[in-house]
Structure formats: C-alpha cells, structure tokens
C-alpha cells in the first residue's frame, strides 16, 4: 500500500471524495469530543490544583496534556471508531459481493483505487482533525477556567501560549500521522481479507475498530515513552 502511494494512476477524485467523507464527516464528532474532554479534564485538574493553591497553572497543564497527549489520542480513537469501521465495512462488502474481483477484471488495482485514497486522506485529515480537537479542547478548558475555576483569561491564555512551543506541537502532530497509518492499514487489511458473507464483514468491522484502537493506544505509549525523550534533545 505504501509502495502504491508513489505509483500511478493517482485517483484524485476518489481522494477528494474521501477527504470530504472522512474529514468533514468526522468534524462534528471531533469537536464534541474535544469540547467535553477538554472541559472534563479542566474541571478535574482545576479542583486538584486548587487544593495546592496552584490553579493558575491550569493553562500550562491543559496546554501540555491536550497538545501532546489528549488531542492526538482522542482524535485517533474517534477516527478509528468512525472511519476504520466504515472503511472495513465498505471494502468487506465489496469483497463478498465480488465487486473487488469485478474491478480487477477491468484492469483496476483495488489497492491503488480504494486503499491509497483512504491512506492519503487519513495522513492529511487525522492531523488536521487533531488540530481542531486541540483548539476546541483548549477553548472548552478556558470556559472552565473562567466560570468554574475563576482564573483570569489573560493568565490562562498566557499559560497556554507558554507551553505551545514547537517541540510540543511537533510531537502532537507526528502522533496523528502514525495513527493515520495504523487506521488505514488495519481497516483496509481487514476489509480486503474479510470473508464469510455479511456476518464475516460484521466481524471484520468489529475487529478493525478494536485492533485500531488498541494499536493507537500502544503506539501512543511507545512514542511517548521511547521516542519523545530522544526527540526532546533535538527540539
């Protein structure tokens, strides 16, 4: 699939269609996830920090937590739930109804025609949606800071800006790219290898979401634990 990324033909129309379906289609879900997660975490942190008289640090903690961890992981999980299931179900249905074979019989490579546009879309859209999720979560946390923790806006935004350094933003955008590969590979693989009729497609779809979600969580941990310290020296 990766080799096909650099081959021809490039299916631009399919890629644009997927951009709309995967990107715009996931926007509402990502916004809701970011908003309520940001607010929930902000309440929890604000209450804890208040006990130590350190609630002014809420902005710093939220900025770090959202940009480096929460935003990428939550967006990855939401995209895995929504997109991986859709991709596997669509490809699986095409497989069991012989549509993939029909495509091959017309001289079309299904990997290039179906999988590559989805991979390209995910590489672009998961980081984009992560930025949206980060922004909405920080906004949601600001509402909590303002109305629940009674922290001044100036202080909150100053703290946010202080931690929005290149290193944190870079890490927060590398992770979604890794997650996009995870979602694309697992969902396409499960779709192309599904068999056993509609029941088989259903099972493949469930497996796809479960495997994508678990792999995202594991990949996030590995990246944070092992790669971030290495990168930190260069950032």
């Amino acid at each position: 699939m990766v080799a096909s990324l650099f081959g021809r033909p490039i299916y631009i129309a399919e890629t644009m269609e997927q951009m709309y379906l995967i990107g715009i289609g996931s926007l509402f879900l990502v916004v809701l996830t970011g908003l309520f997660s940001g607010q929930g975490f902000a309440i929890a942190f604000a209450n804890e920090l208040a006990d130590f008289g350190a609630k002014d640090y809420l902005g710093r903690i939220m900025s770090l937590a959202i940009v480096r961890e929460l935003g990428p992981t939550l967006t990855g999980l939401m995209m895995a739930a929504r997109v991986a299931s859709g991709i596997t179900a669509e490809i699986g249905s095409m497989k069991v109804s012989n549509q993939l074979d029909a495509m091959r019989s017309f001289g079309i490579d299904p990997i290039r025609k179906i999988a590559v546009p989805r991979l390209i879309t995910l590489i672009i859209m998961v980081p984009t949606m992560t930025i949206v999720c980060d922004a909405v979560a920080i906004f949601g946390a600001w509402l909590i800071a303002l109305f629940h923790a009674h922290i001044s806006s100036t202080l909150y935004w100053a703290a946010i800006r202080e931690r929005l350094i290149f290193g944190n933003i870079f890490v927060g955008l590398v992770k979604p790219v890794i997650f996009s590969f995870v979602i694309a590979f697992i969902s396409c693989y499960k779709g192309f290898t599904s068999e056993g009729g509609t029941k088989g497609v259903g099972q493949a779809t469930t497996d796809s979401v479960v495997m994508s979600s678990i792999t995202i969580l594991i990949a996030n941990f590995i990246f944070t634990k092992f790669f971030f310290p290495i990168l930190k020296g260069y950032l």
């Binding site: 095409m94 091959r104 001289g107």
Partner: peptide, 19 residues
C-alpha cells in the same frame, strides 16, 4: 494480468455491480 484482462469480459454471479 491487468493488461490482459482488458480483453476479457466477465459477468460475475449476481452481476457484482458497483452498488
């Protein structure tokens, strides 16, 4: 194979139309 298939027409069981 893809090139060769261009000269072969196949009607699949149940049609296999792109739904």
């Amino acid at each position: 194979k893809r090139e060769l298939r261009k000269s072969i027409g196949m009607v699949f069981q149940d049609g296999a139309l792109f739904d």
